[in-house]
Design a protein around this nucleic acid. Structure first.
Length: 292
DNA sequence: AGTCAAACCTGGGCGC
DNA sequence: TGCGCCCAGGTTTGAC
């Protein structure tokens, strides 16, 4: 689900609500897989009593830094999301209980709580994840460095992500450009939605082999990466299916998207029907007229 | 090096 | 209404 803009939105929410606050307990856990621990007690022992000193994003990963040097490595995968809500909201069998819940928390997508951590004496950080692909894993700084090393450069707000670097990233491969944009080891943070939007705005078909791209075309793609991601950040991400921010609220980029999920609908630029093909086992949407 | 299927899980939508 | 099938924003692993 979440790509760079969504993870960014979540990290901003977590920073605001968590930094300099203490973890005071584990209120709920029904999935050891989600916390990657053998027991809930083991997980609790590693985090309770520490305070949160920082929250950072790297690619689609979230790192919650604790005062004793431990770090909670979070990956939301497809459907994972955090809800930062009053501690008085009770959880029963993964669902929110009570009559006084705000509408956002009644949303069915927020009824798959697998973990909740007490923050101070008034808040809780709950993790809802329908498909249970996501995780909260307590790791060391060394493990964080390993995750960092597995990823390519950050494409937003990074002066080192130059056209020259982007061009170099495309060398040594001849896969479809869409597959390369989604390859986290080459560029961090782009997923299926923004990959399609970037290529549409660049006028390049997703199936184009990298070696077939001229310098001008590479420049056009490069030129759309940061603007697309920044616009999505400004709109707090895309909520076509299940993305929610830390208040349980939706983003609105889906209202601005030009191709993703618009199969058979008219291109918003030329009116041609948008097509869908498979590239690297993923759906790719494009306009056969605007993209070459 | 690249592609492809399968796996992790669960729910929603569609055709019949 | 019910059943079976396909789909899903991510990532990893293993086979060919």
């Amino acid at each position: 689900m979440p790509e760079l803009p969504e993870v960014h939105t979540v990290v901003e929410g977590l920073k605001q609500g968590l930094v300099s606050r203490a973890i005071t307990g584990v209120l709920y856990c029904d999935s050891l897989k989600t916390i990657r621990s053998t027991t809930v007690e083991d997980f609790a022992k590693k985090i309770v009593g520490r305070s949160i000193v920082d929250v950072q994003r790297r690619a689609k990963n979230i790192f919650i830094y604790l005062s004793d040097g431990a770090i909670i490595h979070v990956h939301l995968k497809m459907t994972g999301h955090f809800l930062l809500v009053p501690r008085s909201y009770r959880i029963h069998q993964g669902r929110w209980q009570g009559d006084l819940l705000p509408d956002e928390l009644r949303d069915p997508i927020n009824q798959f709580i697998h973990v909740s951590i007490a923050i101070g004496d008034d808040m809780q950080l709950a993790f809802s994840d329908m498909r249970k692909f996501g995780y909260l894993h307590v790791v060391t700084a060394e493990q964080v460095r390993a995750v960092d090393a597995q990823h390519g450069p950050e494409p937003v707000g990074n002066p080192d992500f130059t056209l020259k670097i982007f061009t170099q990233l495309l060398e040594g491969t001849d896969r479809a450009i869409k597959a390369v944009l989604l390859d986290q080891t080459r560029i961090a943070g782009i997923g299926n939605i923004y990959g399609d939007e970037i290529l549409f705005r660049a006028g390049i078909r997703p199936g184009r082999k990298v070696r077939s791209l001229g310098a001008t075309e590479i420049r056009r793609i490069y030129g759309q990466i940061e603007p697309v991601l920044m616009q999505a950040i400004a709109l707090r991400g895309t909520s076509i299916g299940d993305f929610r921010d830390t208040e349980g609220k939706k983003g609105i980029y889906q209202e601005s998207r030009l191709v993703y999920g618009r199969e058979r609908q008219p291109c918003l630029v030329c009116g041609t029907a948008i097509e869908r093909i498979k590239i690297g086992q993923r759906s790719a949407y494009f306009c056969p007229h605007c993209q070459r």
